[in-house]
């Protein structure tokens, strides 16, 4: 199946078949990455620019590695330190970069919708690496790949997403993706960290971990930003950990074979107990990182095919 999109800005516009296409191709890249010859040249000759307007180590490294393994020329730009400080607008920055003829632009920005705005102004393919509280599509795709490989399917599962739903783009993209693939999605968190209108997303809402985790196949923990712990949204870190931190006792409510996920970086002892994060029988957190590189390779490969108008039916 062909991939009809010019950009990967979010999960929202994707069709379930397109999600499967990305996941299928990602599986092949997992095999490539596990071999000794970790190199392909499908992006050879193309230029990939990573523009991060917000701090990131993991996502940026993952995109960089993905591009390099596919043979692209990769450039990283830490935008907090550059022209933005000099008062240049986002659109001017985009136009400046566009003039350098990149083929793939990977963008992270602290404001929702900023990547969409930028994508309107450039000719190349744009990948959203996280915009504000809006979407983080490659994270949701790598989570889906991890789940599919662990559970053998990515439909009819009960998946609990726990923590700061309100400020999380990871939660949004995952809710959209898992909903499209016909899973039962639960969100668990204190009401202050639950966005308005959540019930309209087709998810079940809980503010009690024991209830929310009952018979879950997948437990997805979210990172709680330190700046939210100051009494504005939750009274204290220790009360949060007591009520919403994932420990063995709470996890016991989920299915015996339930897997535990976390997008990283983790706050051990805040949202997740260290021993659970390290339990190789439950935690798939390291696999998530591995899948991340493969998914990003697949996404960039598919978008680059459109750039070069590779005829349908040609695979890697």
């Amino acid at each position: 199946m062909s991939f009809r999109h010019k950009n990967l800005l979010g999960i929202e516009p994707l069709h379930p078949e397109e999600i499967r296409t990305i996941l299928d191709l990602s599986d092949r890249y997992v095999d490539l990455n596990r071999g000794t010859q970790k190199h392909s040249d499908v992006l050879s000759g193309l230029t990939q620019i990573n523009m991060f307007f917000e701090n990131s180590t993991r996502t940026q490294a993952s995109f960089e590695l993905a591009g390099k393994r596919l043979g692209a020329d990769v450039m990283n730009m830490a935008m907090q330190a550059s022209s933005i400080k000099k008062g240049e607008t986002l659109i001017d920055t985009a136009l400046t970069l566009n003039a350098m003829h990149p083929d793939l632009l990977v963008v992270r920005h602290p404001h929702s919708g900023a990547v969409n705005l930028l994508a309107e102004k450039v000719n190349c393919a744009v990948l959203n690496a996280g915009d504000g509280r809006h979407e983080h599509p490659t994270q949701a795709l790598l989570d889906a790949l991890t789940i599919r490989r662990a559970k053998g399917r990515i439909h009819r599962l009960t998946i609990a997403i726990c923590g700061d739903i309100a400020h999380s783009r990871v939660a949004r993209s995952n809710i959209l993706l898992l909903g499209k693939m016909e899973n039962r999605v639960r969100v668990i968190g204190p009401p202050t960290l639950m966005p308005a209108g959540m019930a309209d997303f087709g998810v079940e809402i809980f503010d009690d971990m024991a209830e929310g985790l009952r018979d879950a196949d997948v437990v997805m923990m979210l990172r709680l930003q330190r700046e939210r712990m100051d009494g504005g949204f939750i009274p204290s870190q220790r009360e949060y950990y007591h009520r919403f931190g994932l420990d063995a006792q709470k996890l016991a409510h989920a299915r015996d074979d339930a897997i535990v996920m976390h997008p990283g970086p983790m706050n051990r002892g805040v949202e997740i107990d260290g021993t659970i994060a390290d339990d190789i029988n439950r935690s798939v957190i390291q696999e998530q990182v591995e899948m991340g590189v493969a998914v990003r390779m697949a996404a960039m490969d598919l978008l680059a095919r459109n750039l070069r108008a590779v005829p349908e039916g040609v695979m890697v």
Binding site: G132, H134, R172, P195, A196, G197
Partner: peptide, 15 residues
């Protein structure tokens, strides 16, 4: 305005 649309788009909202 807060609600499904605001949450979907991830924008800061007011009740």
């Amino acid at each position: 305005t807060s609600g499904k649309f605001a949450s979907l788009k991830g924008l800061p909202a007011v009740s």
